[in-house]
């Protein structure tokens, strides 16, 4: 009712928004560290998902709580929705290329069930060809037998 309580509400929303922004920024910072520390492209992409999806969503929520005018809030909602729709597309394209090319360190894979199951349309270039020996690691159970029937 009184202008005082209204101001209190505004400050509370600002505080919640700031907490959300800080959480998103901290996740982004750790993800950037992960981008440097993780060993190959596919692993780094997991770190990259955080600022792209979780971090940005948190920051957008925080920004919406700060701005609070309907135009801005709806536009920020759209930004979040676009990000949710488009991030998996990029991740899928890049991830598939990384697995076909040299973007994955196969010695660090515990099991790779995608090797050797390619259909005839695209025969060669994505196998870890003869320059790389077949035996990858002593504790890999099935060397490259493709995926098993166990669900």
């Amino acid at each position: 009712m009184s202008p005082g309580s209204r101001e209190g509400l505004a400050v509370t929303l600002d505080a919640i928004g700031t907490v959300a922004i800080v959480a998103g920024v901290l996740l982004t910072l750790v993800a950037s560290i992960g981008l440097l520390s993780l060993p190959d492209v596919l692993s780094r992409m997991h770190a990259a998902t955080k600022p792209q999806v979780v971090g940005l969503l948190l920051v957008v929520i925080g920004g919406a709580l700060h701005l609070r005018t309907s135009v801005d809030v709806w536009m920020l909602v759209l930004v979040g929705a676009f990000q949710l729709v488009t991030a998996p597309v990029t991740a899928h394209v890049v991830g598939r290329l990384a697995h076909r090319g040299d973007g994955v360190r196969r010695d660090l894979l515990y099991v790779d069930e995608l090797v050797d199951t390619r259909d005839g349309a695209d025969p060669g270039p994505d196998r870890p060809e003869p320059d790389e020996p077949d035996v990858e690691d002593p504790d890999v159970p099935a060397p490259r037998g493709g995926w098993t029937e166990g669900s």
Binding site: S37, L38, L108, Y110
Partner: peptide, 23 residues
């Protein structure tokens, strides 16, 4: 993943992953 990224900073064995087929 945040924890794993920080963990990977330590020298030693790098983190291992899998490519899993799910039907």
């Amino acid at each position: 993943v945040a924890w794993q990224s920080l963990e990977a900073l330590r020298p030693g064995r790098p983190i291992r992953s899998s490519v899993v087929a799910v039907r």
